[in-house]
Write a protein that binds this DNA or RNA. Structure first.
Lengths: 207, 207, 207, 207
DNA sequence: TATGAATGAGTATTCATTCAT
DNA sequence: AATGAATGAATACTCATTCAT
């Protein structure tokens, strides 16, 4: 946990993120990661148990950071609408800012090695729980309608995931900026949320 | 192209589907696939150029079959609502019936090897186009509202994909049966489609 | 030994000659030879025990033919000079006319598999004996001088072999025609043979 | 380029020389060479690009050494006679001292793989040029007679090559010692060189 | 006889991991 | 702590040979 120790640890994780994103886990040799990180091959084994451990550590660290950010941002929000919009914004922004992580998530998330899958699913489930909590609250507050919270979360997450997937795969990625509103509107419709414009419209109509 | 030739070709593809789904592409040795298919290692190379060729052939064949089924089913449908419901049903059913393919799709879809990704993206794009076409038609018929067709497709596909993803990853997969209605309702809300129940409800309210 | 049997046997040997000469023994697959011969892979095993057997049969057959020709031609000759010239002519001509055999001899003669080497050395030794016999006779007839017959044969054969070697290796082989006289003169000098011109010259001088 | 690095490089080349000479290139497995060299299979690939690279490096290194020795020895000689005798001695001695190289040269020189052949022909051509230069000088100095230098070189080299070939193939190789004089005399006769004994004899006869 | 699909033993090469320095 | 040379297990692919038809 000394300063230089921490620095090298991060350098290796950074190198691994880049390599995994570019070539995938199996095509990223330890020697390639070591060279990218500016350390010797053997040094990696002073910080990580084995190659798999890099992948797991990487995902837990980076995904943990992402979840923290999501938590911090949503904590600032009052309404369910604001919270959903906040998650949409943070998800899309964070993945765009960390293209390597996004690619890596898209690619290795589905990695089939059981050990890896297990290690990865932890942070992901945590994220799912945050989303489901927001949805559950929204329902109990009467702000929205949703018969199956799990399906709601699947739609919410699946939509963002598909967007990032498209963005990652496309060779010349146009920015996803401006799409937040569109997604938000779709979600509001799906969850029968009366967002502000709708509310005003409804009030007008009633009067 | 003789009968037994075709049979062995399929046996190898079946074995590969199973192996790739269970262990992933890189962890599925040719010898493992050969044993599963009940043929000798060398026999595989009478039917496929190399290991990668199995993956590509597999995806194109199976995904093509899936797309054909989607096409056939949606062709029978009249309204946009029916078409959407039809895709939802077929997607969930087909993937459940072909658990291996579902796992494989989830896992290898994001494969990083450029050649593989290219070969895989073809059939997938085809599927995307079918969805987008249904959505575009729905909009032009005035049945639904959608400002960005692409985002609509991302939501539609992403939702189904996330559902299958959950189902695949969960160790004891509960059936997705019964969820079609839930998804359909969410989509109707998102796209502001007046489905029949809603219509009736609306009419009642109006009266 | 039926007619068609013999035809196929020869077709395979011809195909093998071509293949071995072009690609070498190890790089000439049975399937390649079979295709060149216009037969099925399995058919080859009706005529030859295994791949090695093709090589051995090939060399014995072709080399035997060559030796027969050498024998027939030298039998027509009276003097040692004529016999040497005859061997030179036949060796160079035969190898030029059978470029494949020449290449093959050059390449595979030195093949290291002991079995093959043994099988090959037989016909070669036979050729060596013919040469050595001519030399021995020449010496005993007083026509030539040679302290070590074996070295004489090595020189005689080695020279012709090196010529063929150069001719085979060179991409655009100029004909060896006209070189027979040059070689013959060198040999006469080495063996202190008074060839006709020299004899005449000597007689003239003496008179 | 450190000492141990160089040592291992040489150990592998030595092992390869031995293996190639004994079993030929194709029958010498990397694992066999590694075992002979006392290193692990993978270690070989730290020093050589691939199996073919070993063969090429080997020939260039060993043949280069041989040519250097030839050059150094002939440089010490004054007369054409001395130079020819020197090449004969060095050729026979070097090949006898490096039986493996001799076998290897005999065998792989005629290798059919174009890459290998190309790499091998370089050093060999160099040797040919040295011989041809000596012959050309001898002719221009009036010491010897030779209408076609190339054929002269073919005879000179071919003779030595055939001697080594016999020596290599024979199971119980008698020494070639003492044969140098015999060869030299044959060459003198072929090239009409007046060597000392001949000179004296001629003078006596004339007087 | 002839076929050619099927076999499976054999091998060059890679790369995660170790360990002497 | 750091290095990187060395290791050797693992694996895709080839091809001589067989055998049911």
């Amino acid at each position: 946990m000394s300063r230089p120790r921490e620095e090298k640890y991060q350098a290796i994780l950074d190198a691994a993120t880049e390599a995994f994103a570019e070539y995938g886990f199996f095509n990223s040799q330890i020697s390639k990661i070591a060279k990218l990180a500016g350390v010797a091959d053997g040094t990696i084994y002073l910080y990580f148990k084995n190659k798999e451990d890099i992948l797991i550590s990487l995902f837990q660290e980076r995904m943990g950071q992402f979840i923290n950010e999501i938590r911090q941002e949503t904590a600032k929000c009052q309404t369910t609408q604001e919270q959903l919009m906040c998650i949409i914004r943070t998800h899309l922004r964070y993945m765009q800012e960390n293209r390597s992580l996004a690619m890596f998530t898209q690619i290795e998330l589905r990695q089939s090695n059981p050990d890896i899958r297990e290690a990865i699913s932890g942070p992901l489930r945590e994220y799912f729980q945050i989303i489901e909590q927001v949805l559950t609250e929204g329902v109990s507050k009467g702000v929205m309608v949703l018969s199956e919270v799990k399906v709601g979360r699947q739609m919410f997450f699946g939509t963002l995931d598909a967007m990032i997937s498209d963005w990652v795969i496309s060779k010349k990625p146009r920015s996803l900026q401006g799409m937040e509103e569109v997604v938000f509107d779709l979600m509001c419709g799906a969850f029968k949320i009366q967002d502000r414009k709708t509310e005003l419209l409804t009030k007008d109509t009633l009067n």
